[in-house]
Design a protein around this nucleic acid. Structure first.
Lengths: 215, 215
DNA sequence: CCTTAATACTGACCGTGGTCATTAATAGAC
DNA sequence: GTCTATTAATGACCACGGTCAGTATTAAGG
């Protein structure tokens, strides 16, 4: 019998260690999500998360720099998924505005499922650091690129002027989205008004600048 | 002698209490600023601030809800001043873009004088609550209105289309400014590039949408 | 197999922000 | 002035996030 544990890690180092580490990561993420959503972020102690994940209290901080970074870990995965899902299913025939609203609707809906936690997240994210926060920044960048791609496509359709730089446009759009997100989660804005008048109006005014000049 | 402590607080209740309270507020603000700027926000304990202000540790939390709110207290005053100063001295003959850059230059310069602390501030501000944070929100609103006024003036000059809503415009502009601020203080952006290419480009693209449509 | 180096995990420990029962100060009524 | 009600200030106290010296686990070489 030559089989069984034959190929020692040919390239992908599925070493015992790496496997266990990945396992723990997942357990931590799951435990944090569960506790944060049921008890709230502030009311959950890091030691509770550690215990629920089956690790010692100090071990947690080998996987997240601190509590904020832990929260980012949880959201990184969710945002990654939504962002990919929405960008992949953009209605092809629609205007750029409608496509953007489609994308952001997905994101906002995702946040709204756990509004309290989302609130903590946006409160914490701008000042957060650490490996998971870095991951999240990467996700955000990919999202930005996705929006830029929508702009490029709109240019091909002649819907947007050639001289508009797609990434610059995406950056502006993202800033508007983020501003509305902050307003909503600070309680200044009600969820019912987020997408429909508020974000739409903001984007409308920005997109005015995209159209080919009326010559 | 009918003088001396004659008028009992006719309207403005300059009661002994209110006076002392105001005094303490100032002492706390001064102490916090001094310690935060010299030692850093994280390295300064609330008890240090209390001691430097000449009050007991617990008293501090009668004037600020928590440490973040204390930081907001410090910045509220500074931002109020800069914002007023810049809005009051806007170059009258310039384009809207130049006026906006004038205003934001003042704000950015102000932040850059204490970059490390500014960083902590923007990290903490979005999630902050409490009386001082509320004050700061008021200041921000006034600033927004100031920008809206610039837009209105530009409309009178025919530089901006009539159908653009000044407050909507101000809101979009502010979102762009805030985005750049976050980028800078997260280290993504160098200060030398903040105003000149980055913010200017963002505003340029937004202002395109303001101009009266061609023809 | 054994040995050694490297990596991962542990949990007692510490300083902090923030609370709250208690005490002090002030305002107003008489 | 004295008494009482209200508001402000105090600081001992506590739970938490985060650290780190010590221990266990795994990988690699012989």
């Amino acid at each position: 019998m030559v089989t069984k544990t034959d190929r020692p890690p040919s390239r992908a180092p599925r070493s015992r260690r790496a496997e266990k580490k990945q396992d723990k990561r997942e357990r931590i993420r799951a435990a944090a999500w569960e506790l944060f959503t049921t008890q709230g972020y502030a009311a959950t102690t890091t030691k509770q998360v550690a215990k629920a994940a089956g690790i010692a209290s100090g071990t947690l901080f080998l996987y997240a720099k601190d509590k904020p970074d832990l929260l980012c870990m949880v959201f990184q995965e969710r945002l990654q998924k939504v962002s990919d899902a929405q960008l992949a299913t953009v209605p092809p025939g629609s205007s750029l505005l409608d496509q953007l609203l489609w994308v952001f609707r997905g994101v906002f809906d995702n946040y709204s499922e756990h509004q309290a936690l989302a609130r903590e997240f946006v409160a914490v994210f701008p000042g957060s650091q650490g490996p998971n926060t870095d991951l999240l920044h990467g996700t955000t960048l990919a999202f930005l690129q996705g929006i830029a791609n929508l702009v490029t496509a709109a240019q091909r359709r002649g819907e947007v002027a050639e001289e508009v730089l797609p990434l610059q446009a995406a950056s502006n759009i993202f800033a508007l989205y983020f501003g509305v997100l902050l307003q909503w989660l600070s309680g200044i804005l009600d969820f019912d008004h987020v997408l429909e008048p508020t974000l739409k109006n903001a984007l409308d005014l920005q997109l005015r600048g995209f159209y080919p000049r009326g010559n």
